[in-house]
């Protein structure tokens, strides 16, 4: 019974993600206007036939911004997750496989990275960036930074897994029959790391979506007029009651639904990894 409901949950999560991705991909056709179009005579408007989710404080259609913002956050978060997983695989996986001094150095670097106050460093890094970058470049840089800095936890997991693989019977046996180290790594170690890599990839996506949202709230994420979930969530900062303008919560609900869907899929990946 439990397995059936889990499967149903995963199917539902998959359907939600497909629907959200499809809607955001079709933003050009679904949105009533561009994300930057300002209806200055209809600022802060409630939902209507013209603006399904109303307009923001400077008259931009909220539905259009949600669609385009979803596209940005959902496309770039997996890209950043891929980059961080790749780095984790390279640093953690190789260090674990080689062992000895290599593993100690790699883990020391990882610990150092983990102990740094990343929020402040990200703010500083963003502030040090050239000012004159287009919104698109600012989006790319934001996610690139997240990807480059988010590999540490995954690297520790991969290092431990690779170390256990190194001392496993089948690897010892392969070494005993004279298989060269490089070939042994690609044929026996990497395929066995794959489930862990997948799991780390899926874990990273919601983390990066939330990190970008946090940077957006600090005014340091995706530049105007480009929307992202972070910039859309900024609208909620001054709200004191849910009933005041409930349609403003749509981006938050979407974020929760998408992150939950990722988590449901992730549990499947963890089962595979186990």
């Amino acid at each position: 019974m439990r397995s059936e409901s889990m499967n149903l949950g995963r199917k539902l999560a998959c359907a939600v993600l497909v629907l959200v991705l499809a809607a955001s991909a079709a933003a050009n056709w679904l949105a009533p206007a561009g994300y930057a179009r300002q209806y200055r005579d209809a600022t802060g408007a409630p939902p209507s036939r013209a603006h399904w989710l109303g307009t923001d404080e400077i008259g931009r259609d909220r539905f259009a911004r949600v669609l385009y913002g979803t596209r940005i956050s959902l496309l770039l978060a997996p890209a950043a997750a891929f980059l961080s997983t790749l780095m984790a695989a390279f640093i953690g996986g190789l260090a674990g496989y080689l062992g000895g001094a290599w593993a100690r150095i790699a883990m020391a670097v990882t610990d150092l990275f983990l102990s740094l106050p990343w929020l402040f460093l990200l703010i500083t890094a963003r502030a040090l960036m050239p000012l004159n970058v287009s919104p698109l470049v600012s989006v790319l840089v934001t996610f690139l930074l997240l990807g480059l800095l988010g590999w540490t936890t995954a690297a520790r997991v991969l290092c431990t897994t690779a170390a256990s693989l190194r001392s496993s019977d089948f690897v010892r046996q392969a070494r005993a029959v004279g298989l060269p180290g490089q070939r042994l790594f690609w044929i026996h170690v990497v395929p066995n790391l794959k489930p862990v890599l997948y799991a780390q990839f899926w874990i990273s996506i919601p983390v990066f979506i939330l990190s970008e949202a946090n940077l957006g709230i600090l005014g340091l994420g995706v530049a105007e007029p480009m929307p992202s979930w972070g910039s859309l969530l900024k609208e909620l900062e001054g709200m004191v009651s849910v009933g005041e303008e409930p349609w403003k919560f749509v981006p938050l609900i979407l974020l929760v639904v998408v992150v939950t869907s990722f988590q449901l899929l992730l549990s499947r990946q963890e089962e595979i990894a186990a």
Binding site: A36, Q38, I58, A127, N132, S134, G219, L220, E224, P225
Partner: peptide
Amino acid sequence: ERMAVLIQDDLQKIGIHVNVVTL
């Protein structure tokens, strides 16, 4: 921040691209 976005939109009408940066 909002003034900057409105100005960004106004200047776009005469072909000027403005990047808004909050620090």
